[in-house]
């Protein structure tokens, strides 16, 4: 590995006030400041954002796709968590 290798950063952009930051991709930069400057040039050339977050990719912890069943399947049989599970008489109208 050459000493000129820049670490990888994940980039998150808030497209406008009122919306949350959203992952848009990644880039390489020597430090956080440069990562933000590069993110501006790479991901917001057409006013796609008003706020940028950058996070070193190595700092992200992620759930494993192999755990999909254990993690999310239990929610499958809890249909009573959804409003459509309940019958409301039509005379009541919208609830």
């Amino acid at each position: 590995m050459s000493k000129s290798n820049w670490p990888l950063w994940e980039v998150f952009i808030r497209s406008k006030q009122g919306l949350s930051h959203k992952h848009v991709g990644s880039l390489h930069a020597a430090d956080a400041e440069m990562a933000i400057e590069n993110a501006r040039d790479v991901y917001t050339r057409r006013m796609e954002g008003i706020s940028i977050w950058v996070v070193p990719s190595s700092e992200i912890s992620a759930s494993s796709p192999d755990d999909k069943d254990i993690m999310y399947e239990p929610a499958n049989d809890k249909v009573y968590r959804h409003p459509t599970f309940y019958n409301i008489p039509p005379e009541i109208g919208h609830m």
Partner: peptide
């Protein structure tokens, strides 16, 4: 561009 990449790393390390 090699010297730029190296200088940026050196600068980042110094700042840190």
């Amino acid at each position: 561009g090699e010297w730029v990449r190296e200088a940026a790393v050196a600068h980042a390390e110094k700042k840190a």
